[in-house]
Design a protein around this nucleic acid. Sequence first.
DNA 1: CAGTATCCCTCAAGATACTG
DNA 2: CAGTATCTTGAGGGATACTG
Lengths: 143, 143
Amino acid sequence: MALNSQPCPVARSVDLIGDRWALLIVRDAFDGARRFGDFQRGLGVARNILTDRLRKLVDAGIFTTQPVSDGSAYQEYVLTKRGESLFPVVVALRQWGEQHLFAPNEPHSVLLDSQSGEAIPPMQPQAADGHLLTAANTQVRKL
Amino acid sequence: MALNSQPCPVARSVDLIGDRWALLIVRDAFDGARRFGDFQRGLGVARNILTDRLRKLVDAGIFTTQPVSDGSAYQEYVLTKRGESLFPVVVALRQWGEQHLFAPNEPHSVLLDSQSGEAIPPMQPQAADGHLLTAANTQVRKL
DNA sequence: CAGTATCCCTCAAGATACTG
DNA sequence: CAGTATCTTGAGGGATACTG
């Protein structure tokens, strides 16, 4: 099933980042992780798996490696433009999870606007004129 | 690694829908698929796998089954409210894929606003006052 | 048509030990 | 600390045959 050559962008995205770890690595990067050990501690993933995933993410152009600032012998993994642009995806997943996967009073981590300190409102796709878009008033044009 | 009991909503979402098929099944549902065969043809997935995924998605409250309107012996799978609310997630993945996973003139399926017939603009998280939110001006408050 | 029941095989993933 | 190397296990997934 070569998802990576399908005409549907969703399929290609899923092929690249639709596994158990990729999006969580990206999430941790958004959260400030840069070093191998940052990711490893944050995720609790086996080191060989992490090595493999980081390499694939670098190959996919989502991360770049660069020499670490403190002069250590190793490198750090920083998001590229392409990686940064996954922000809406991670936010959408976060918001869906917040709304549907926690018991009413169950605590969870929250994404805050640094300026206001407020939680951020749900993302909603909207048209150029501002009206909200749902599955009901959109359609996919296939090839 | 029990992602489904972590305090991060992203982790729980990934645990539920972060596999190769779940999101594509949801995508096809947004695109009008309701019957087992609709999904099977659209995805090219093995039937036993599809059976398993549909069951898990029903268990997760993302789909419901209901008797099919044409009176056949089988059922159809329709998105619940919870399932419908995955729309922004799928749109975000679609838009990211469109921007980054296709060659400049490579054709791909497109999501259109049914009213205007226009492609829909990129989703961007934004604060209550309307300013755009990025990884740079947001932060996660952990527990 | 919409599944279920088997069989089989690959790869994801963890554990652990080793290295510069 | 940041990996690499090796081994083992289990889950994911495909193929196919069968059933109401």
